[in-house]
Amino acid sequence: MKLQKIKEIRTLIIRLALVAGIAFVGYWVYQLFFKGESTDEIVLEETPLKVEQIRSILELNTLKFQDEAVVDSVEYYKTESDVIWGTFDKLTDPNQFKHGLHPSSVKRRLTLIVRGELLYGVDLKRKDFQFIPKGDTLTIIIPQPELLSVSVNPKGTEVYLENGEWKDYERAHLQRKARNKMIASGDRLKLPERAKAPLEKVLRALVKTDKTLVIKFEK
């Protein structure tokens, strides 16, 4: 009689474990293969937009440049045992499970694809414009065209790969790196130099004089 009861309890435990196992596997299958990555499910609470500063500006935007940069940060395990323990940790974390299935020496990796826009031109509010009339010539010395804005925004930033845990400042550091890469490619393409020609054209349109107009850029 007692043996019969033990058998029944054992069967019940096995069945319960089986049901829990099926539920667990089902949850993981759903999480890994069926759950769509969508931002539509995010509904933000209404919060006010605070205007902190209003400025009147006068900027001539003579050149616009759109660029894309891939930035990456990787950290490796130092020893073989670190690889084993690290992989075990990832397997037990639902967010890192995928990365644990293929053990590698990569401890953490964050890859971003960043799209941005650079605007070159001149700020007419600057006071270093010089007008030098001499005889039949009017010489205008103007500042070099500069980078007026670099738009690197969340909508243009895609977290392509996140393996391991990453802090906000580390992500911001990568975004800064992407921004600098874009500025560097703008410099490589000599965009500040190219922004000069339309600027010169604009000034010739703005300044009406009978004298010969000479436009020079500050050195």
Partner: peptide, 27 residues
């Protein structure tokens, strides 16, 4: 030709706003 020279200016930015926002999400 002088009347239409204004088109050479291209884009002219005249106002700048600095904005702050708290993004609040309850998941």
């Amino acid at each position: 030709t002088e009347i239409y020279q204004i088109r050479a200016i291209g884009t002219l930015s005249t106002t700048e706003y600095t904005l702050g926002k708290i993004i609040h999400w309850d998941d």
